[in-house]
Amino acid sequence: MGDVKLAYIVQKPQYKGETSRLAITHAIAYQTVEILLEDGDTVTPTLCFVGEGVLGLQKGQKAMDLYGITSTESHIKNSLLVDLDVLVCKEDLAKYGIPEDAMPDADDMGADKKIKVAPFSEIQKAMEDAKHVLFF
């Protein structure tokens, strides 16, 4: 069957509920799915943040210090470290007044990938290219 492309569309703010966090961890799980698949089969998620889903992504989070839980920032950094494509909607960032340079990176961890602040048309293309679209 080969590769199956998935689009994870996160529409809810981080920390408001659990599912916006679970979208990220479920996407990262693509790293280990091959142990359950036939040789040559893969799953490739693209993680997309749109609407209120762009809230709570900024760098400098202190969730571990204040609440003893991993931050969304750390999950995003792990996503980049495992080479996930992470798209954040450019128009929605602008709507909420969040500067693009507030998005975290994982340079300190040695990641090659970076968050891509992308126009919605690009996120729509990711949805069109995916076999399955999952809304979180």
Partner: peptide, 22 residues
């Protein structure tokens, strides 16, 4: 199991429905 169970089942599925939670 872990989350990769879900992804593996998705891989072999004709349709996937994600029923979102809170």
């Amino acid at each position: 199991n872990a989350m990769h169970w879900y992804l593996a089942k998705i891989h072999g599925s004709d349709r996937v429905l994600q029923i979102g939670g809170e």
